[in-house]
Design a protein around this nucleic acid. Sequence first.
RNA 1: GGCAGCGUAGCUCAGCUGGUUAGAGCGCGGCACUCAUAAUGCCGAGGUCGGCGGUUCGAGCCCGCCCGCUGCUACCA
Length: 518
Amino acid sequence: MSANRFYITTAISYPNGKPHLGHAYELIASDAIARFMRLDGKDVFFLTGTDEHGLKMVQTAEREGLPVRDLADRNAQAFRDMGTALGASNDDFIRTTEERHYKASQAIWAGMQAAGDIYLAKHSGWYSVRDEAYFDESELTSGEGGRKFAPSGAPVEWSEVDSYFFRLSKYQDRLLELYRSRPDFIGPETRRNEVVSFVSGGLKDLSISRDTFSWGVPVPGDPRHVMYVWVDALTNYITACGYPDESDPRWKYWPASVHIIGKDIVRFHAVIWPALLMSAGIPLPQRVFGHGFLTNRGEKMSKSLGNVLDPVEMAQQYGRDPLRYFFLREVPFGQDGSYSHEAIVGRLNADLANDLGNLAQRSLSMVNKNCAGQVPTRGPLSPEDEAILTQAYGLIGECRTAMADFQIHLALNAIWRVVAETNRYFAAQAPWALKKTDPARMETVLWTTAEVLRVIGLLIQPVMPESGAKLLDMLAVPAARRDFAAVSATHALISGTALPEPKGLFPRYVEPEAGQGD
RNA sequence: GGCAGCGUAGCUCAGCUGGUUAGAGCGCGGCACUCAUAAUGCCGAGGUCGGCGGUUCGAGCCCGCCCGCUGCUACCA
């Protein structure tokens, strides 16, 4: 990966159900990062997709009376549709049931095998059919008659099956060295600490195949087995780059700049994945970043609590851009966050409608009425004008710093700090009063405000692409001048340019009749 | 149990290598303005910085103990 390329992925979603807010959140955040990097001049490849194999898909399909492939097709489409509804700009959407992925998975398997890291053995342990999981002896509780039970209360039985294993244990030292030499490989830091602690405690070899079902990628040379979870799912990130064909035009994007994932699967991405890659002799991703979870008023979303919200419906209710803004501004990226209807409405009305929307409205409507609908005449700049402009131009640096560590909320904080400052500037300069006493000065104040709005419009595009475009449209900023290279005085608004009539940027959210609340 | 982290205004959180009257946003109270999406601006209320004890000329920031909370402690993706 050259310095100018940026490859970002979300985790691939397991589509045995409909997409939920957690999926939406990860996609929105990744999309904002991808868009930021594109606008900042990078050659971006942004990937998302679905992980469609495994027993649960088979079971869900049975329950619904569908062929499993039909279920996969239907639900994968639901995830694609969610992306559309949220404005995701992914360059590809990978499905692990695709032919290209079979090739890639079998190729990496072969690579690991060639390295001597795969062997066949008995996978044994206490298995709970209901939980579909193995449990360590220490996790079990004993009931009457010596029967043993999983933490969930489900009965367990001793199970022994043939399985291929990956020599994960062999990579402990190399992994620790990786974490030591590249401190930002895992983020945020708290996740890094956990992983280091975990690996330091020793690694066991990993069961990577099953012969108890067939819905998966066949193991090369032993079609009784399908690959189990790890190899199949993680490999998607290189499948999309054309692996194993290194002459594929996409191969240049590997290694990925960052895998954006939920905090619950950090270990798989920060331990197993690099080990698989090391084994197969493939370069390692630059970074792995685990975001937090969203809760509804502090409670986990769950069907039984009835607080599961459909992200597509939310986008319709609040607007795609405002919804994106809310989650990216309200939740420090990497930490858990809570949301509620009240919190969303509060943010939308305060930050979007009142602060930014109204700033655009109050200034641009004055321009429209008093400056012949053109970019105002810029006279000599006062120290106050210079100060606010300097702050605005300085934002790109702050945003770059924040986004380099995926601190999206800090970038937005910085932008809104300037929005607030601009409202103060506008009130202090009182162009409505200057209209009578010093029209030329009024024009300069309006020009300065419009120029700040131009910069704001450019910088909000990653998070709110439509709204950013709308604001830039109102300022007649040409399409070719909408990347971050334009965040400078060099590309400032030119006095006399004709402007369209301003339109509301962010309407206030008003409760529908007989407020349903949330 | 072990390891890691956290506990600062009603709420969500900032507080750099310890140093004058502990900060922001939201919420709340008052005032101003009327260009604007009943928007905005100004002022304010005011928290024993979880508790106790230390180190220090001086601690929210260092040390010890205690209380409370969270995460991790592998085969569910």
